[in-house]
Design a protein around this nucleic acid. Structure first.
Lengths: 252, 252
DNA sequence: CTCCCGCCTGCCGTTACGTCAGGGTCAAGC
DNA sequence: GCTTGACCCTGACGTAACGGCAGGCGGGAG
């Protein structure tokens, strides 16, 4: 029913010094002391310690942990639910890192060179939530968006490598075409626009000509997309936009 | 091809100060400087940074990370394999925490009270590896051991709750019997011994009478087991041992 | 009564940065 | 050519979460 520091430390897998520290900062003070001044922990203290350790494992600073635990509006069950949720989020994050590693392993086997952005995708501050929120706002709750998400979540590393390879191949060809001076409404340019549409259809969602031109206009309106294409080759964004429109008109 | 601190920081999701720090301690010094003294990072630096961040995420101290990365006997592929392995270990650990949480949620729903040991199972220093290594040494590569492991790995929280409940029920009854003064070779004691054998058979592995008596002797020889039973009630370990032997003889 | 282990309270050390302070740099715009 | 704002530099001190040690009391086994 009552435990000394050493016993608590052993069963909880922490050091005595840690318990002293938690006592010192008021995060976990034992419910009592012996006449000699020895700390005595009871079951309630252990329960609290368990909460502390879980939240600590999840990366919270101790001060915040104190606030969370002392929140009067949180019963034990609420903590369990919360920790469960946080744990699954962390696991998901680590699994993303695993797929990133697997991706890199595949890429290195195939001698594909990763860009810095790809390298740090899992760390970078592109903030998937932000991204996703923006995409949702922009795309709305359209069928295409949901379809894309549904399909994308099914792809494995091999698929992504294929997509990447296809995309890079296509990119090289349109850059070459732009450099060659062929106009954006030339048959070659329109063919590449058509190919772009089919890549999207094959891998992400059914992309009609109408949807395709809408996509092209969005590319132009969104600085993030234009800068992406402009970085590949200056003038490419506008060139692609024009080619997509020409293609849609000629095939309609 | 060459990046400033700020650019590197943004893409890698760290602060500029962190890069300064890594430079300061020699963990990651940029390959060059501009005439004005600005740090210039190239692709190789970014690659190294990526390694650093992965190992950091995995909880390694920076000094150790430097040693790992500068290990001449580790090519990029080896790092990928290593990180992959470490990540899966961490994921497994977190998943154990999840099952522990789920276990606690179930237990709290059913109003079952957890013991401190159970509470800290996932943290405690019982060191599963140590445990497992010992069990393997002790049990050898027996069929029973493998069977037990195979079955145990299939159980979910509900199963464990059932096992726990059954076990506690059995425990209460044998403690009561011991307290009642019934001798260890009384029919009641032998019935409880038989029940013990069947619990093991049902949940873990086929437990013959011979195996059962062997198990009982091992309990007696192993201080960890005896102290477990002695903690429940003094004299219980020896009582159970005797009852199991009596039961095996009478049914043989 | 002694011995050894466990507990106590300072107090300084360490890791991995955060956070200014004080001062140069660079590209853009007037 | 000059300003301006964003970006870079080097100290230097601060912080969180303990680790580790010193110096001293407590307590039960022999």
């Amino acid at each position: 029913m009552a435990y000394t520091v050493g016993q608590v430390a052993r069963v909880a897998g922490v050091t005595v010094r840690t318990l002293h520290h938690y006592d010192g900062i008021g995060l976990l003070s034992p419910s009592g002391r012996t006449p000699a001044g020895y700390r005595r922990y009871n079951d309630a203290d252990l329960q609290r310690l368990q909460l502390v350790l879980y939240y600590r494992e999840l990366g919270f600073p101790l001060e915040e942990i104190a606030a969370i635990i002392d929140d009067p509006a949180a019963d034990p069950a609420a903590h369990l639910r919360r920790q469960h949720e946080l744990l699954t989020v962390r696991i998901k994050r680590l699994q993303e890192m695993v797929t990133a590693i697997e991706f890199a392993m595949e890429a290195s086997k195939l001698n594909i060179q990763l860009t810095p952005e790809e390298r740090f995708e899992v760390f970078g501050d592109f903030e998937p939530e932000e991204h996703e929120a923006e995409a949702e706002q922009r795309w709305g709750d359209t069928d295409a968006y949901r379809e894309s998400n549904r399909r994308a979540s099914r792809y494995g590393r091999d698929d992504w490598l294929r997509i990447k390879a296809e995309n890079e191949d296509w990119g090289r060809r349109i850059v070459a075409l732009l450099a060659s001076g062929a106009p954006a409404d030339s048959p070659e340019a329109m063919d590449l626009a058509e190919e772009h549409r089919q890549i999207i259809s094959r891998w992400f969602y059914e992309c009609s000509y109408e949807v395709h031109t809408g996509l092209a206009d969005m590319y132009m309106a969104d600085e993030r997309f234009t800068s992406h294409y402009e970085n590949i080759a200056p003038g490419l964004a506008a060139y692609l936009n024009e080619a997509i429109h020409a293609n849609a008109i000629s095939r309609a």
